[in-house]
Design a protein around this nucleic acid. Sequence first.
DNA 1: CTTGCCGGGAA
DNA 2: TTCCCGGCAAG
Length: 455
Amino acid sequence: MDGGNAAAEKEKKKEEEVKGERTSPRGSGRVPHDAEKVSATGLGDHRDGGSSGTLKRASPTHCPAANGFVHLDLRNPGRQAEPANNNINFRAAQWRIAAPPGRQPLPSSHIPVPRHRNPSGHADKEVMAATVLTSLSTSPLVLNTSPAVPEPASRAWKEVLSASYSSSTSGNWSWDASDQSVPSTPSPPLSNNVSKNFLLSSRGDDVIEDAAESPHFMFEDPIPRKRKNSMKVMFKCLWKNCELVLSTSLGIQRHVRSAHLGRGSDSDYSDGEEDFYYTEIEVNMDSLTEGLSSLTPTSPTTSGPQPVFPQPHTSNAYPHAANAYPHAANAYPQAANAYPQAANGSNAVPHSQNIAVAGPHGGPSPTLLSQSAPSMLYHIHTDHAYQGPQGRTTGERRQPAAAASTSVTPPPKSNSGTRKPRGDAKKCRKVYGMEKRDMWCTACRWKKACQRFTD
DNA sequence: CTTGCCGGGAA
DNA sequence: TTCCCGGCAAG
């Protein structure tokens, strides 16, 4: 009898204790819970300090807008086969020194990535135009900062271009104030539409395509940053029955050329006719990603082939990949190692094969995609990938490289919906009360589903 | 608020 | 495996 009472009392006490404790976390819902878990697993390095710290170390300034462009620089060190651990310092130095002496293959730190990718004449044209535009909007002085190094012509303009980029967006690397004394022609912030479009249409192709080619940068930062303004400019094919949407004008032009105008798919030649067959549209990326998140509840590593839902997939798969790379290269030299895993394990890449499209607005049917050459589809990824940098101006959450390789999100409560509805029947607890807990069915005692009074 | 019980940890 | 409990979510 003692025992029983004691036990009951104890229980009661406990229960009360619990209650007392319970009230406080109330309302916080799952968030803290999950957050806690995340951090516990080491997945969520949600401290800004930690994450951006690495980046900061590499960059002389903390200019947030730089994100989008850092990667341009990052790649060079790699190419030059610099020791990984030297990268940071080396790069930092480069940023300060406009024109390093000697015959560095790539004297300027901001030399754009585009390696030996086959330069399409068209792209050149476009970039040239972009260059002009850019130079118009930035100080001429800035252009001078780009060291005149004997290089192939193509490289020359690229340099100029990149110089402009750097100055107009992340203009304060090191030579900022001193060099550019042209306040009257303020460089457009990265976030504004002009530069955004600009990025998408011209440079986007250039760089992003590269990103696709060298995927080592597509790891890390599995947590897609929140885009504030998630409207994205896309290019939609107007050809009848073809609603292909690509994220780059170049891409859409190629598509039109090859798919509809019957030109060689790789033909560089453009007579401008394509322009009539596509239009610009705005797509709300948020809804895309939202859709995605609900569609891909499981981690890529474990999931098998998934139902094809191309649209959302694209949008999501790439954002983080993209964000990843700007700092990835320097922050995590070993990142390259991590990547292979990601590439193999995750199905992000495979999936993307037929994406290409579609806004949330009940977009084009997937079938249409098949019309377009697969190669086209690349553009969209890359572009999406590129989205990342734009949206993040403040520090964003990053994850250790290791975690990045596995999955994007912590295994979601996959079957949270399966929780069985509460029955009407009174359970042991209610029937017997706390005092007679020993009369409860074991399940009830264990806070499991009651076995005695089932529904 | 109370109650049922899932998910997961400890013994 | 058994037992326990934090905490979510329905009511």
